[in-house]
Structure formats: C-alpha cells, structure tokens
Design a protein around this nucleic acid. Sequence first.
DNA 1: GGTGTATTTAACTATCAGGTTATGTAACCT
DNA 2: AGGTTACATAACCTGATAGTTAAATACACC
Lengths: 127, 127
Amino acid sequence: MADQISSTFAALADPTRRAILARLALGETSVTELAAPFEMSMPAVSKHLRVLENAGLVERGRQAQYRPVRLRAEPLKQAVGWLEEYRRFWEESFDRLDAYLQRIQAEQATGNKNATKKETKDAGKRK
Amino acid sequence: MADQISSTFAALADPTRRAILARLALGETSVTELAAPFEMSMPAVSKHLRVLENAGLVERGRQAQYRPVRLRAEPLKQAVGWLEEYRRFWEESFDRLDAYLQRIQAEQATGNKNATKKETKDAGKRK
DNA sequence: GGTGTATTTAACTATCAGGTTATGTAACCT
DNA sequence: AGGTTACATAACCTGATAGTTAAATACACC
C-alpha cells in the first residue's frame, strides 16, 4: 500500500469520488443514495467507496440493511498541509513574463548567485 | 483528458512527482539534476515531468542542451480551494463519538430537518 | 421461512500508469 | 565532421483502475 498522502491524492483524483465526498459533507447517508446521481452501477460506486475508505476519507457503519457512509476529513488536513508549502508560489500571482522579469531583475541586483530564489519584489503587480 | 483538478490531484498522487515539485521549489533546474536522487531511469523521470506538465504544474524552457524545468503553482491554488471546503470537518477535531454527539445535538435542536433522512440512531456504537 | 431491499463479492474486460531498454534528436565541443 | 551530453520517443511489459453483469450475503418484514 502506498503512503497516506499518496492514497489521499489518488482518491481525490476522481470526480465521482469528489462528488461523493461533497455529498457526504451534507451528512452521512446510504450507499444507494450516494449512487443515485451517477450513471453507474452500484458495484462501481461500492468500489469508489472502498477507495475512499482505504484512504481514510470515509467510515462505514452498519444499520439494518444500510451501511451508512460518513466523511472523515483528517487526511485532507495532511493534504492541505502539503499544499500550503507552495502557497507562496501561487500567491506571487505571476504569469510567465512577470516571472521572467522578476528573475532577471533579481539576477542583476544580486550578481546572480541565487537566481532561482526569486526575490519577487513586486509580485503583486499583475495588470 | 480529465478536468484540471482531477489531473492536478492525480499528478500529486505520486511520491516521485511530489519530490520533483519539492526540488523545484528551490528553483528551476535541469532534468538530469531532477532525476539524480531517484533510482529510476531518465525516461521514467521524463514521463513524470510530462504528467506534471500536462497538469500545468511545471513549465519547460530551452537553454542549449538543457531543458530547464520550473514550478508553476497555480493549479495547486485550485486544489487547496477545493480542500478548504472541508476544513471545518477536520477542525471539529472529532473522533466518531464526537461526531455522533454533535449530530444528534443538531438534530434535536433543528427538529431533524437535515438528518439525511436516515435517523442514524446508534451510529456511534462501533464494536 | 420466504420475499424484498441494500450492499458486497466475484469474475471478467478494457484502459491507464509506471517502469524498462533501445533508439532518436538536438545542441555543444573540439 | 565526429563525438559527447542532455534529453525525448518508441515499443514493450506489468500491475492497478474503472467499469460491467451475475451471484452471494445480510437484514427486515410479513
């Protein structure tokens, strides 16, 4: 089995599974109800649920014939933690030209040395 | 081809690719240097880069024989946006019992209304 | 105890992902 | 021009994913 964060991201890579999680955010429900919106057989949904369960993103209960499914969001926390490391990169809001300009500017200013470290002085300038 | 967010998550689901992105956060570099830490052939790394590129997570330049690779973090923004929708779920810091207690409390308070039409009476009873 | 409902498991198929080796291509370096 | 360096592409293999239909299981209800 893969590491936790890999299986979390893998689970999230499928639109059906993301839709299932979105539904579960409204509250625990049955497999049949989860399956209803999809043009897909029940066993297919059952498999998606298994993937989500293996990733720790859902838990399953037992209640009469029903096996209620419930969201477990903890793994998402870890995923967001990983992504946050990159926040500064997208917050620099750069398109390619900006990036290029910033880079050569930085290079000229510092005599190069750490040209890839980005200096991004006026990153907020877009438009 | 899949939607943007699916291919972003799919790209992030592989540890090699996450390591590549982590390296790129330190600055743009060559394919060979990216490949160095891995026990894997160059073509394998090349494929990973292709996946990252298709997901919009890297850009590639051309500089003599080198084809420098550079991080593009914008798609991560969207991914984190999706995840943020679930933040409240993991911040509620709940184990299953907590979740159960919160749910019945809410149900009692609101006269049931959004109990997922299932009443989930003793859902917290695992074992 | 048989029937209906909810869901899983099994068996199968097709496609995709990640790896390999071998070969091709483009730019640099005498 | 010929060799080396840096990389990509092609062809191939293997295992995992995503779906299917059909059968099995579990419980509720009469």
